[in-house]
């Protein structure tokens, strides 16, 4: 087996192991684990059996298989970032509306306190 095979196997399994450990320790919540665990498995498998990529590349008409890995990696990263921005937008809305409600409640409380301490005749 060539050296790079050991390297890729090591990298693949190490990444997979770290991700699975993070999920197990609940550092990575299950919702996000649904994305990362399959990814970890794929990385692990491809790391141990790089010829898989060669097979895929041939089917897709890519002449230099490693490029396929890079492209797929970038594509997945792009999708992930896009999804994250979408989620962040949703969170921002929630946060802003929460802030508004809090401000309204505090303002009304302040008025009630004032009226209680000095009731209008």
């Amino acid at each position: 087996m060539q050296t790079y095979h050991w390297t890729s196997a090591f990298i693949g399994i190490a990444v997979a192991a770290i991700i699975l450990w993070l999920v197990k320790r609940d550092h990575l919540h299950t919702r996000y684990a649904m994305w990362w665990v399959p990814l970890a498995i794929v990385i692990g498998v491809v790391g141990v059996f790089p010829p898989i990529i060669d097979g895929f590349a041939k089917v897709l008409g890519v002449h230099y298989p490693p490029v396929l890995v890079l492209i797929l990696g970038l594509l997945l990263a792009l999708i992930k970032i896009l999804v994250m921005d979408i989620e962040r937008s949703r969170n921002e809305i929630k946060l802003q509306r929460l802030a508004q409600r809090l401000g309204i409640v505090e303002g009304e409380m302040e008025r009630l306190k004032r009226e209680r301490n000095a009731p209008d005749r």
């Binding site: 802003q96 802030a99 508004q100 809090l102 401000g103 309204i104 505090e106 303002g107 009304e108 004032r114």
Partner: peptide, 12 residues
């Protein structure tokens, strides 16, 4: 001035 005031918890 006894005017109703809603204080935002952070700048919105």
């Amino acid at each position: 001035r006894n005017v109703l005031c809603f204080p935002m918890p952070f700048q919105v």
